[in-house]
Write a protein that binds this DNA or RNA. Sequence first.
DNA 1: TAAATACTAGAATAATGTTCTAATTGGTTA
DNA 2: TAACCAATTAGAACATTATTCTAGTATTTA
Lengths: 201, 201
Amino acid sequence: MSRKNQTSELKSRVMEVALVHFSEVGIERTNVSDILADAGCSVGSLYHHFGNKEGIAEAVFVDGVNQFNSRLLAALLPRRTASTGIKASVTFCCEWVTDQSELASFLLSREVRFSDSAKLELRAMDRAFGQSIYDWFVPHVKSGALLELPKGMYVPLICGPTLEYSRLWLSGRNSRSPGDVASILAEAAWQSVKSDGEAKP
Amino acid sequence: MSRKNQTSELKSRVMEVALVHFSEVGIERTNVSDILADAGCSVGSLYHHFGNKEGIAEAVFVDGVNQFNSRLLAALLPRRTASTGIKASVTFCCEWVTDQSELASFLLSREVRFSDSAKLELRAMDRAFGQSIYDWFVPHVKSGALLELPKGMYVPLICGPTLEYSRLWLSGRNSRSPGDVASILAEAAWQSVKSDGEAKP
DNA sequence: TAAATACTAGAATAATGTTCTAATTGGTTA
DNA sequence: TAACCAATTAGAACATTATTCTAGTATTTA
């Protein structure tokens, strides 16, 4: 096998193993030595590739966010109406969390403290993602289907309840999975951003 | 000064100092020795009172949740209509986060890994809090003012967007504080749980 | 083939959370 | 008041564990 392949295989093996430990007991309580043993990796290699323990967590996080973002866009962008787009996004989100509960748990835990470089990378990803979302939204706001709101509010309004419900479910405090209640969450999200509701008092 | 007072003063000094460090760099990266120095506390005392570093974090967390819960109930319970109750809760939440951003940041970070005993304590608090909320809700659901939903869904629907927005603001990604957008969040929360909206398709 | 580069290895080190024993203090009881 | 006891304080010693460092090995490139 070529070195490139060998290396990237080692890296993903480490990340995979690390995710299991991180989501189980958190970053602080997982020992580097456990990751090394489970991934069959030497100290030197690990620090060569990831810098330090946080570096592993950052890599796993960035990877997870990238996967989530691209799949969400794939669910949203093809939709032609405001209502179907919003509901498809929320539904996708519920299914993703239910499906990939380990990764979701890690991403939602917000345990990672990012280095400056990781912050920059995430910020850039976030900006690009936000722009795609925004571009999809604009026509629906212009047409009057969606409320006109400050730019930073659509995501919290639409995803907030789902993410909060997911956190509760992941921590074992709700028995019904997000997938099970997706339709309720989707409908509620739609109600909160659709236009032509009752006028404010 | 009596020993009791001296002790409780030391404990709250430690917790205060610890919160500053925790919210700044996270639990893992704050050194016990820094807390000791800033609080003027010896190793022995600290471990006598808190058991270990996580114990400090747990104490700060439980304290914060208690404060938040009781104040939220004080904002909600006196309201007589569904609409004013929901909106008052959301508004309170926004103001609390804006006001106590350090504590809010710590509570929302979900960085703490609780010991079994802390889990029990939190679970009990949560149960009592949830029950009070639930008791307030029941009549409004019965009267048809609020949607009838699974028990665990009201909190995510009502608070989710606010908490999510707060996280974004606390991490510096939105310039307008939750307090500034409270009315939007309050209105959206109301729209998502009020009854007699459009029928589901 | 030679040189450079990327990677691996693991012993040694350093940082830091926690334990332990001894001393002290404040409150309680005889 | 004096003696005693429990709660608390102190900080040196310890243990754990992340990280560094030096040396060596493989792979690519010129």
